[in-house]
Nucleic acid binder design. Structure first.
Lengths: 163, 163
DNA sequence: TACCGATAATTCGGGTCCGAACGATTATTG
DNA sequence: CAATAATCGTTCGGACCCGAATTATCGGTA
């Protein structure tokens, strides 16, 4: 999953191509590892937990957000899940077609669409989420316990840095 | 970009839906923030640096890997970049069509395809990568300096945990 | 009440993204 | 040395992903 070259090998190769340009290798390492980690964790969870329910990562996130906050507007799901409304429209259509959620236009504001889970959707999440969280625990167990809150904080700092 | 609900609000909502089930909220926070962070950083870099060159994130990663390690086999690019060979084939076709890289069959092993940058590809990376790294620095600057190496280490732990 | 700027969700087009199946090539084995 | 297994890159089908354009609705204003 991770690349086969070490950071030092990569760094010396970069130096040989950019000469004495000022580069921040620590910043490089953080963003590079951020994506490797996110990708690795996502693929792992998709294979171990989500595959048996035939759910993609994004579909699961959508179900989770709706499950916690239903009824919730489309814009809220997109903001909470971190993807665009354009992406969400397609995923909602998929999940609605499979009978896991419903869309209905708001009576208070005709522009809004309210999304809720169906009973089948709630049954699925009640069964799936504990398994998902167990696997999350398996993965993060490899971080020493004291560092866990700091890990979450560092990631929050990164999120805030892009705003 | 980030969800508008705090972790505590989410936690109490989850508890109200799963009752007294044993859940690891710290693990939840880490994986959740991991994806928000990766997504936020990716979108930010795509808008600030990559958009002007009309490159997607994945296309940029492919160019970077080839730039550092050329000539490199297709399987190597996929492993280094963290995506599947199926994904890579399409991206390579796009970048080859735009004249940034070339593919040639290996004479030593007829199954392998070796990828190299064209002069135009090397010019692009020599100009683009310093800008990219500068933006990486801007983002990670919000992490206190002492925590930077630890941030990279925690992310590496997560990667290793999925292997 | 007719306009008009702002807001919401969807559609559209092009580019990822992956697992599975496929064809080609190389390695292995009896 | 022929049959078989293993490996590599590509193709295929279906789903995701985003920015921009589109359609519909709301709120305010004269």
């Amino acid at each position: 999953m991770a690349g086969q070259h070490t950071l030092n090998e990569t760094e010396s190769e970069v130096v040989s191509r950019l000469g004495d340009l000022q580069l921040d290798f620590e910043a490089m390492a953080v963003t590079s590892n951020l994506f490797r980690a996110a990708n690795a964790v996502r693929n792992h969870l998709e294979r171990t937990v989500l595959a048996k329910a035939d759910l993609t990562w994004t579909a699961f996130v959508v179900l989770w957000v709706v499950w916690i906050w239903e009824p919730i507007e489309t814009r809220g799901i997109a903001a909470e899940g971190g993807f665009s409304k354009a992406t969400l429209s397609g995923v909602l259509a998929t999940l609605e077609g499979r009978g896991f959620l419903t869309r209905e236009r708001s009576v208070a504001d005709g522009r809004l669409v309210l999304v809720s889970l169906t009973p089948a959707g709630r049954r699925l999440m009640k069964k799936l989420f504990p398994e998902f969280n167990q696997e999350e625990r398996n993965i993060t167990r490899h971080i020493s316990t004291g560092d866990l809150p700091q890990a979450a904080q560092i990631l929050r700092d990164l999120i805030r840095a892009t705003e």
